[in-house]
Design a protein around this nucleic acid. Structure first.
Lengths: 225, 225
DNA sequence: CGGGATCCGTTACGATACTG
DNA sequence: CAGTATCGTAACGGATCCCG
């Protein structure tokens, strides 16, 4: 956001919006919660952002200290959340919670990738995880690989497949969102749209239990307004 | 937001932003959490919004079912949150929490009124209130009257003075925000910027205890990223 | 005076094309 | 792959005007 169009108020809500309030910014942060990403990952994932706008936003977010531009040994450019940027997770989750109350678009556009699911899934699981748990799961959503890791009371959801997963879960994006919105019960979701394979005994139950309580938590939080 | 500039994605975060993501919308909702407001209340409170934009935003928010336009007996037009609109409270609180981590502007502009404080104060108190409490407090922030009411486990913060307050608290806006941001300790805030009068014995202690725990909660939530 | 509507200059956005 | 450059269009900001 250029200086001219900032609110410049003392109110912390306005202050937050001056940093993340313009178009695309929150969606860029959302996708970065799935782990560091290349320019092109973001460009395709955001489905419709112009490349010059992506450049502008990335620079702005970097200026405000929310993201970092990294260049690996072989010249690969990666954008990653800073510690400050990580702290948008709960905020994004609350946005998702509120968005779930609104009717979905009649003919929504498909994003180029599904990094979009990472924050919401992470925070939802984080809220219900029991400390001391351990889990390393491979998720495949419409064929796209993600890693869900629980260590201690800490949950992590990242783009990309894990090395030696204890359990593998395959599902599809649309039913996932429908379950989160409450348009599809968790039981029907699992029965009809989930294929799960345990590589280590019992880990399949741990995963479905975690996901079930995460979805239940979303429903409770949505209803408690 | 016109149809052309909507994201139209399935992702609930994008869905939320399609409803509340354009400029001023979240700040309008923020101010409405202080209770129903007139067009002019919003116009002055938002400090710098153009009247045509306010009209546009109010219509859009009404279309999406977040607010209601009411006309009282004497033709006074009031805008109020719907039940759906009320549910933006936690979202706005999380924005405030995140904004508190960002450096405040060097020379912030003053809003025309202080409705801005209502949501944040309400949700912060809501999070720490002990069920069964009862309190009716008159707040005066820079001379502007607010009502803080606790009934059961329900907290309400509204613009305007209460009828028969059990306690009256006078303070100023800037130190309030500083205390919320953590730039000023709660003890210093109370000692230097708060004038409190109990009209019913003990209610002053109940109020300061509530506020103290609310501020502590904000600090904990901000640090736990 | 409250509650807007209209007009107009400026800025940001969106789409496409192009480059190291 | 990671952007830059250009350009038409839509949104914003400020001011003025209008009507009950």
């Amino acid at each position: 956001m250029t200086a001219a169009r900032r609110y410049r108020l003392l109110c912390p809500i306005a202050r937050a919006l001056d940093a993340v309030g313009d178009r695309w910014s929150l969606l860029i942060l959302r996708d970065l919660h799935a782990g560091p990403a290349r320019f092109t990952d973001l460009l395709t994932g955001l489905r419709g952002i112009a490349s010059n706008l992506l450049t502008d936003r990335l620079q702005q977010l970097a200026e405000d200290g929310l993201i970092d531009k990294q260049r690996s040994d072989y010249g690969v450019v990666l954008y990653a959340l800073t510690d400050l940027g990580e702290q948008t997770d709960v905020l994004l989750f609350e946005l998702a919670l509120f968005g779930g109350l609104l009717p979905p678009d009649a003919e929504p556009r498909r994003p180029g990738n599904l990094r979009t699911i990472a924050v919401t899934l992470k925070v939802a699981c984080q809220r219900v995880v029991t400390s001391g748990s351990t889990l390393l799961a491979a998720l495949q959503v419409d064929g796209e690989p993600f890693t869900l890791r629980v260590r201690g009371a800490r949950v992590e959801v990242r783009s990309g497949a894990p090395e030696a997963p204890e359990v593998t879960l395959k599902t599809a994006y649309e039913p996932m969102v429908a379950a989160g919105d409450g348009r599809l019960s968790f039981e029907d979701f699992v029965a009809q749209h989930v294929e799960i394979t345990a590589h280590k005994p019992g880990k399949d139950l741990i995963l479905t239990d975690l996901l079930g309580r995460a979805v239940a938590e979303i429903r409770v939080a949505s209803a408690s307004g």
